[in-house]
Write a protein that binds this DNA or RNA. Structure first.
Length: 911
RNA sequence: GGGGGCUUAGCUCAGUUGGUUAGAGCGCAUCCUUGACAUGGAUGAGGUCGCAGAUUCGAAUUCUGUAGCUCCCACCA
């Protein structure tokens, strides 16, 4: 036990306890067959990334879950790690290189460049993990994993080889999304559609043979720079305007060539002019049309987005966007451009390169997603549950229209594709079914000198999709790892944002189902349930700024979490972020919205401090010890009430965790501790604390009990301050750390305390009585006075309740109470409560009109209530049909309302 | 074009299977530095729960229609 300092200083407390936890091995995960497993795999942040608000939210939630699970007595694994993040990291290093030495990666060569990336990783790789520690994340850091670790790489390659051998992975020349900025193909998921303001060009292609009056076809396009690659003009076969021209030819203006007019139903006659230029090399649809009609594929744009020699000498080497206006100008010079119209359309942008992607034909590796049906089944049958549930629709919807995944990247940083080609055989002549031509294995060919490895690496997501199983030792677990796999896998819950349901969640599910276990065709539900990577998916929203915009560096609206920790403490930030994280999609972040976290910590701190100042500390070493200090005979209504509330809030929190509803979490804790305990219970205690020793000890025992339980309940959210107070107030005397105590359940508390439920009603009435007394004072600007004379007229039980609680009332309301037999006749300001009528005993005259206005307003309210209550109770259908407790409640309310109304009426008349 | 989601106090949001007088935080107004806390306390103003129907004894809550906003997916040049 130690003296609690005057002000709460998170900067002192937080690092202190974090170090202690690490030292004591509090976060270490250990297989324990006697406990239920609870495992979370961290969504691995980019190895060179910096902590941002999204991480704060995601990891705070995970930490809340695992810390709660530890309190519940489960064996807990929170696996940390980082992702090599292929494109992001490589781009960053390339940029740095360019800026510092002016070199490109080609100057260094593959080996040399990769060395630089590893250096960079060594420098910055630990940063984000350290930042997570500042937040209080209770990961088992000894297990920190990296997607390019040797063992992990082996898992990735094994997965590739298995999927290849099972026929899910193939190589093919296809239209892919090419990023001209990063010089690699990317997957459909890495392309973001953005509205672009551009120009709709209307141009004319001359018919080789005039069609009567008609000498030209009019064609609209947004991309005139690709016309040099046109190999046809397409029209709808049923389009009366053009159908008869099918089979004829037109002149492509430059390089001048005859190209056919073809009929294809893809063309929408109503759109533009109804004529479509077909550029099979640079448009996905055009490519398909080209396939159907056997058209030449003329590539005129290269990997960097520049035009090449095929486009003609004046365009050779020109950037695609420059070429767009240049081509239009040339058309205009030739008299072939009819119009330039402003136009807005959706253009695909490369997520990383942030430039428009270029559809490009290239040889790539593709994954035909395995186990799509089973991936759906696992979710549909509830083996995997999404929280909130509605996200499963998004997931299923995506799986329904799923296309093959381009998994090769023209990068160096990543897992190199484990495929080797025999030297001396032209790539085009390779027979992939012949082991003498193509070698696919984890180890590589026995005679590497005769082979050349595929130059590409795998998409980062084609490694992180193994995260849950690879981190536990798959595919070749040692005996120890096998135990871990058996125990922790499938993991309990995955916590992540909805933006990566497609990138990661769905792919992990399919990978797990396909690869975890033997290669069998049919999977029973039981087998499926063993293979899935996690049983629950907790989806949270994205953090946006107060105006709903995405957080970004360029907007400058992305606060540095470390600054926030500096100002509000890690606990304050955690509480705040948890408090504003609704179950909806977006979270609007504004700094003032997390102040509540700091304020709550401060309140907790000061309430504990007040406890310490209120009297000597006693045995707080266990729940039993504290309960043993409470004498039920000494407990009054307030004591029973706060204990009943404690049981209630404990139960509600249990429900929250069981159903993955975290939105109410902080609200429940806040309302109970601040609203009920501090504002009412502690205030009410003050008179008792000044009373006799025995009563004081009893009251302090109850305070100790409530604070202890609040510390337990709040610990997952605000671990540092609760640990500090746990220690300072002597709760740690027998068990050192909160997490090593067993969470007291609502049931435990109920049995141990058995609070009198009837006290709750009495206390609610008292609270109303006190509030009304305060309101009366406030009305007459007497709020600050502590000894305002108040008369009250009450009868029967109510009179007894007031008498028994007179000292509370006087303390809490700051009044001196006097009971009167009869209502005073001289028109004093009054308030009507369920316990009786209050009169402010004023020596000066009152403002009769103001008093009348106030009471009339109150009267109207009550009249409405009475009317509503009466009509309800006169309705036979209600009385007969509604549940008994509802009817009884309505009766009770009507009685009370009627009494109050009559009393107010009487007072009004007397004024 | 397909699929979600949202619409409740000035702002941001709760409101569990329909059921006592619709709540919270912030903001606002008035008062209070009374020995836990001004990162505080007290009091108060402020809502016909987007709109229109339907079901029901009873609807913010269920259903239908409708308007507006928003996100995701999708190959209209």
């Amino acid at each position: 036990m130690s003296q609690i300092a005057k002000a709460y200083d998170p900067k002192e407390v937080e690092p202190h306890w974090y170090a202690k936890w690490l030292e004591a091995g509090c976060f270490k995960a250990a297989v324990d067959p006697n406990r239920l497993p609870y495992a979370i795999m961290i969504p691995p942040p980019n190895v060179t990334g910096m902590l941002h608000m999204g991480h704060v939210l995601d990891n705070t939630l995970q930490d809340i879950f695992v810390r709660r699970a530890r309190l519940e007595g489960k064996a807990v694994l929170w696996q940390p790690g980082t992702d090599h993040a292929g494109i992001a990291t490589q781009t960053k290093v390339e940029k740095g290189l360019r800026e510092t030495t002016g070199q490109s990666k080609y100057d260094l060569g593959r080996e040399g460049f990769l060395e630089k990336v590893w250096d960079f990783r060594a420098e910055s790789g630990e940063v984000i993990l350290n930042q997570l520690q500042k937040l209080g994340a209770s990961c088992d850091w000894d297990r920190t994993s990296f997607t390019l670790d040797q063992a992990y790489s082996k898992a990735v390659l094994t997965a590739f080889v298995s999927l290849y051998k099972r026929g899910h992975i193939y190589r093919g020349k296809r239209m892919v999304n090419w990023c001209p900025a990063t010089h690699t193909a990317i997957s459909d998921e890495e392309v973001n559609m953005q509205p672009q303001r551009g120009v709709f060009y209307k141009m004319r292609y001359e018919l080789v043979e005039a069609d009567g009056e008609r000498t030209h076809l009019e064609i609209s396009t947004t991309r005139p720079e690709t016309l040099m690659g046109d190999s046809a003009v397409a029209v709808h076969p049923a389009d009366e305007r053009y159908a008869h021209l099918i089979g004829k030819t037109v002149w492509r203006p430059f390089p001048k060539a005859q190209i056919p007019i073809i009929g294809d139903t893809y063309v929408d006659p109503a759109f533009g002019t109804g004529c479509l230029k077909v550029t099979p090399a640079h448009d996905k649809n055009d490519f398909e049309i080209g396939q159907r009609h056997n058209l030449a594929v003329l590539e005129v744009i290269d990997a960097e987005g520049k035009l090449n020699g095929l486009a003609g000498p004046e365009f050779d080497g020109m950037d695609r966007f420059k070429a767009r206006t240049a081509a239009a100008q040339k058309l205009e010079d030739m008299g072939l451009l009819i119009a330039r119209e402003p136009y807005e359309n959706m253009v695909g942008f490369s997520e990383r390169g942030n430039v428009p992607i270029e559809p490009r034909l290239s040889e790539q590796w593709f994954l035909r997603y395995p186990r799509v049906a089973e991936a759906k089944r696992a979710v549909e049958r509830g083996m995997i549950q999404f929280h909130p549930d509605r996200w499963k629709k998004t997931y299923l919807n995506w799986l329904n229209g799923i296309q093959d995944w381009c998994i090769s990247r023209q990068l160096w940083w990543g897992h190199r594709i484990p495929v080797w080609y025999k030297k001396g055989i032209a790539r085009s002549a390779l027979d992939f079914d012949c082991p003498d031509h193509v070698h696919v294995s984890v180890e590589g060919p026995p005679d590497p000198e005769n082979w050349e490895q595929d130059a590409d690496v795998l998409d980062t997501w084609a490694s992180s999709y193994l995260w849950p199983m690879a981190n536990l030792g798959w595919p070749e677990p040692s005996a120890e790892q096998q135990k871990e796999l058996d125990f922790w896998y499938p993991t309990t819950v995955l916590v992540t944002g909805f933006d990566i349901i497609f990138f990661w969640v769905a792919r992990m599910i399919m990978a797990g189902i396909e690869l975890y276990g033997d290669d069998v065709e049919e999977l029973s539900d039981d087998a499926l349930a063993q293979r899935i990577p996690f049983k629950n998916v907790f989806i949270h929203g994205l953090i946006r700024d107060a105006k709903g915009r995405k957080m970004s560096k360029s907007l400058g609206n992305s606060p540095d979490p470390l600054d926030l920790i500096q100002t509000y403490g890690a606990d304050g930030l955690r509480f705040g972020i948890c408090n504003i994280a609704p179950s909806g999609s977006d979270i609007l972040f504004a700094e003032e919205r997390i102040q509540i976290g700091r304020n709550f910590c401060n309140k907790l701190w000061n309430a504990s401090r007040f406890r310490q100042m209120s009297g000597p500390m006693a045995d707080n070493s266990s729940l039993e010890a504290i309960v043993g200090r409470i004498d039920p005979a000494l407990c009054d209504d307030y004591d029973h009430w706060i204990l009943a509330r404690l049981v209630g809030v404990s139960e509600e929190l249990e429900k929250c965790f069981a159903s993955y509803e975290i939105a109410p979490l902080t609200h429940l804790i806040y309302a109970f501790f601040w609203g009920d305990f501090c504002d009412w219970y502690v205030e009410a205690s003050k008179s008792k604390l000044r009373g006799d020793e025995i009563l004081r000890a009893n009251t302090l025992a109850i305070q100790d009990l409530v604070i202890r339980q609040v510390l337990q309940l709040a610990h997952p959210v605000i671990p540092h301050i609760t640990e500090e107070l746990w220690y300072s107030l002597g709760y740690a005397a027998s068990v050192r750390y909160i997490q090593n105590t067993r969470l007291t359940t609502a049931m435990d508390l109920q049995v141990a305390l058995n609070p009198d439920p009837s006290a709750v009603d009495r206390v609610l009435n008292l609270q109303e009585f006190i509030s009304q007394a305060r309101a009366l004072k406030s009305q007459y600007n007497l709020a600050a006075q502590r000894d305002v004379a108040l008369l009250y007229a009450a009868e029967g039980d109510a009179a007894q309740v007031i008498a028994a609680n007179a000292s509370f009332i006087q303390t809490l309301a700051g009044v001196l109470l006097t009971s009167v037999e009869q209502a005073p006749s001289d028109g004093l300001p009054a308030a009507v409560t369920a316990l009786g009528t209050l009169y402010l005993d004023l020596s000066r005259s009152i403002d009769v009109e103001a008093e009348k206005r106030r009471l009339s307003k109150e009267l109207e309210k009550l009249n409405n209530l009475v009317r509503a209550g009466e009509s309800k109770l006169e309705n036979r259908k209600f009385v007969d049909g509604a549940p008994a407790n509802i009817v009884a409640g309505a009766r009770k309310q009507l009685t009370e309302s009627t009494e109050k109304r009559d009393e107010i009426r009487r007072i009004l008349e007397s004024l």
